[in-house]
């Protein structure tokens, strides 16, 4: 398969957007390693490298129910996990309560810490190496799948606010994609819906493969670049692809697009 059309079109990025490009690259780097992760051990390694690359104290992916069993990849100490179990902290942990009820990404600052039990719990957690600030993202999937992705860090309110503003989107995408990959690994026989691509999605992938820039494709399809991006994401999701290049190659290999 020719590879020239897999080159990203740098013409899409005007110079003043270089800073943003750097951020995209960090996320893309992660997604590439995620794609290469094929075992639970790989996911554990990936969670550790995620913690390091974003410079936080901990990263945790925890699926409560995948094919009837729990699954976790995390950077906590075994002592803290034992302690959490033994004290049944799941009952006072406001992260758990919040995630069970709601779908929004939860900054720990906005959880209910009013109860004495929950505040003492956080104090003890911090002593055990858990960050005092955190972001937890609930993830739900078909067949009652429920998972939680968290990063936490030792930080003041103001420096955490800055970190969170810069990285929240990355974390939301990362949480979603880790979950998908874990489902692929843990339940390879799962009922993966094979959805057909819509004409717009097919056209989009075809133009991408031909090396057109996003701007040019949007013009051809008479839609905004913003909407085009959503179409690409939609196609990517249907194909189970972690990035655009993967989506294009998958569409080719399944015969969904051709020249």
């Amino acid at each position: 398969m020719p590879s020239f059309w897999l080159q990203p079109s740098w013409a899409d990025y005007p110079e003043q957007k270089l800073v943003q490009v750097a951020k995209v690259t960090k996320l893309e780097t992660f997604l590439n390693s995620l794609e290469a992760s094929q075992t639970p051990n790989d996911i554990q390694t990936l969670i550790e490298s995620l913690r390091d690359s974003y410079g936080v104290s901990n990263a945790i992916y925890h699926a409560v129910n995948l094919d009837g069993a729990p699954y976790a990849a995390l950077t906590y100490t075994p002592e803290w996990m034992d302690r959490y179990q033994e004290q049944q902290y799941v009952k006072v942990d406001p992260v758990v309560r919040g995630a069970l009820q709601h779908f929004h990404p939860m900054d720990w600052k906005r959880l209910d810490w009013s109860g004495r039990g929950s505040r003492e719990f956080l104090g003890e957690a911090v002593d055990a190496g858990v960050g005092n600030q955190g972001l937890s993202i609930p993830i739900r999937g078909p067949n009652g799948q429920f998972a939680l992705f968290t990063i936490n860090h030792d930080a003041s309110d103001s420096s955490w606010a800055k970190f969170s503003a810069e990285n929240k989107r990355d974390m939301m995408l990362i949480s979603h994609y880790i979950h998908k990959q874990v489902v692929n690994i843990v339940c390879p026989e799962g009922d993966r819906e094979t959805q057909s691509l819509s004409p717009r999605e097919t056209d989009t992938l075809k133009y991408l493969s031909l090396g057109f820039s996003r701007g040019q494709i949007a013009e051809k399809l008479q839609i905004s670049e913003h909407t085009l991006r959503v179409y690409i994401d939609s196609a990517r999701h249907k194909l189970g692809a972690l990035n655009t290049i993967h989506a294009v190659t998958t569409a080719f290999s399944r015969g969904l697009i051709s020249f």
């Binding site: 999937g141 989107r169 057909s196 819509s198 994401d233 939609s234």
Partner: peptide, 23 residues
């Protein structure tokens, strides 16, 4: 990422595009 009205009932308005993104 969960059930939505647009994906379940109105994908004829979006040329079959289904929206599924945490963002």
């Amino acid at each position: 990422t969960g059930d939505t009205m647009i994906n379940d009932h109105f994908s004829h308005l979006t040329d079959g595009v289904k929206f599924s993104s945490p963002l």
